[in-house]
Design a protein around this nucleic acid. Sequence first.
DNA 1: GGCAACATATGATCGAAGTCATATTCTAGA
DNA 2: TCTAGAATATGACTTCGATCATATGTTGCC
Lengths: 187, 187
Amino acid sequence: MLPEPYDLLPTTALSPQSVAAGDVLFRQGTRTRGLYVLKSGRVHLERVGPNGERLIIHRAGPGTSFAEASVFSERYHCDAIIMDAGELVRIDKSAVLAAFGNPDFARAYACLAAQQVQAHRQIMEIVGIRRAEDRVMAGIVAGFLDGTVVDFAVRLQLTQETTYRALRALVEAGRVINPSRGTYRLA
Amino acid sequence: MLPEPYDLLPTTALSPQSVAAGDVLFRQGTRTRGLYVLKSGRVHLERVGPNGERLIIHRAGPGTSFAEASVFSERYHCDAIIMDAGELVRIDKSAVLAAFGNPDFARAYACLAAQQVQAHRQIMEIVGIRRAEDRVMAGIVAGFLDGTVVDFAVRLQLTQETTYRALRALVEAGRVINPSRGTYRLA
DNA sequence: GGCAACATATGATCGAAGTCATATTCTAGA
DNA sequence: TCTAGAATATGACTTCGATCATATGTTGCC
């Protein structure tokens, strides 16, 4: 099943495909065919700078969509390169454009987009906190410590080691409790 | 004039207002009235954690909108506090919801939202680069060094000093040229 | 059960980015 | 024109997060 709001589209708009590591999904400058939903694997979006510098624009992970803006553009503005093999679904550009005629789809799309923007803004604020201890605390308050500490550290743009040390410091300061190995909660 | 796509809305949906530093625009838990476009001044969006920790969710600057997700929510999920006095426009929630019945508005909204998401992803990738020199280089390639170096440094989540030093190092390495005081370009 | 892979956890060391200080140049405005 | 404030620029010092290393605990799988 596709994530909202793309579950509202007819199946004729969807092209599932398997990809292998190293495959190039699309290239900067080629005609846009639509956006993609990644079911499994990893994809890098890269842009080539004026002097040939390769700049990673985005690293897409399982369960996320990418190249959404291509729906509103004639050409792709970056390369999409498969890092780890996986399954993905291409969603046809014209079908999405047509779907905006359906107010339910439009509202569902806008709702998700607004939430994404809000989430990004929040992560940027948190990542902007310099002290690891404050950053980790903010991350916990924001509810980011749901999975493993390793994933949490990645979200905070910190190393695991620094994250563990910050967690311990917060526990020692009484601001966080550590009821069992690997689980942390606000005090 | 309002930024796209809100310029497509009828003026009856808009409520301009002046605000002073310290004013509270809305509080977490109060009924949503709509989103805001900030013409001048500065606004902080803050959420209060379970134990009373104040967490800045977003700092809105001139020319940007905020609380977009409130259009799809019954209650505000954060406080909006005016940091610097300015002018803003409230955009009525029901008018926006109704406007999604207009495919042109829906497409314009989605186009802008998709671009915003893409821009956020890119900034997050760049901010995730640890070495200041690499980060500054990526920032230049991405075209972020359009205004002052100070603004550039803020966007990169680096201090001005580190940014200046990285710029100098890049100039010395021949990767960037510094035709005149305060101007830098790719070599 | 036993093993491999991974998450948790912490110590030691180093380097890079932050902080503080200061000087110069530029600009806007009284 | 003079001045206040901001941007540019760089030096000295410190700190904190990254890196490398290592050990233990946990989980899934053959």
